[in-house]
């Protein structure tokens, strides 16, 4: 009895509920990473002394160290300093903060890809700074960064399972729980892997198509 189809089918509903949590964490984590990454990119570009160096140092440090450790730090250690978060919230914060370090680089590359002439034309029309950014630069930079951001969303999706270390009941946690109850881990774990493949592979094909349309940064 290597593979038990009945058991596999039986475990599917629970796994799908776990997958919902995985997707929710990915969605919220991505939104946080998109927003925070833009803030990081703009602060670094602003060249405000000290502040932009601090952000640079943080980004370099945070993306060189493991997300798992960061999640554990946020969930288990911060409560000792009066910051208590639920597992899902802590997980979303960890994902968002870690991926913001990547997305800030994406935005930076996207902003750098806006030709100098666009800045100069905006200056020659005496547009105020806010309009230069909101009216001219970002509308041109953002479409270019969409595929790269899409790749990070897929990447994040596949990293959500490490939040099992802080008790987020996502799909791999569910698989482990089922395995512990029945002493059969093969079916739920394999199905979990298949679910990841079923979502991330089509998503990455979609991103590759987008890349062909708008170009790779």
């Amino acid at each position: 009895m290597i593979w038990d189809w009945d058991y596999a089918i039986e475990s599917l509903p629970a796994l799908l509920r776990g997958l919902q949590v995985t997707l929710l964490a990915t969605l919220l984590g991505s939104l946080l990473a998109f927003a925070l990454g833009l803030v990081f990119a703009l602060v670094r570009r602003s060249r405000v002394p000290v502040l932009s160096q601090l952000v640079w140092a943080f980004v370099e440090f945070w993306r060189s160290t493991p997300l798992l450790v960061q999640a554990i730090l946020i969930f288990f250690v911060l409560p000792g300093f009066g910051i208590t978060l639920s597992p899902l919230t802590a997980g979303v914060v960890a994902l968002g903060l870690h991926y913001a370090c990547y997305t800030s680089e994406v935005y930076r590359a996207g902003i750098d890809a806006v030709p100098r002439g666009q800045w100069e034309a905006a200056a020659a029309l005496h547009l105020p700074r806010s309009r230069v950014w909101l009216g001219v630069v970002l509308p041109q930079a953002v479409p270019r960064v969409v595929p790269a951001l899409g790749n990070y969303v897929i990447s994040m999706f596949k990293e959500v399972p490490l939040l099992l270390a802080i008790g987020v009941v996502e799909v791999v946690t569910v698989a482990n729980q089922l395995g512990a109850q029945t002493f059969r881990l093969v079916e739920p774990l394999t199905l979990a892997g298949v679910l990841f493949l079923l979502i991330s592979y089509p998503a990455s094909l979609l991103v590759r198509r987008l890349e062909r349309r708008v170009g790779v940064l």
Binding site: N176, L185, V186, L189, T190, Y201
Partner: peptide
């Protein structure tokens, strides 16, 4: 390439550590 990029690394890790010995 597509298989190992598409399935999560943690799933792969658990699979080799827990499912493979069981199989």
């Amino acid at each position: 390439v597509e298989f190992f990029r598409g399935t999560s690394e943690i799933v792969q890790l658990f699979w080799i550590f827990f499912a493979l010995p069981a199989l």
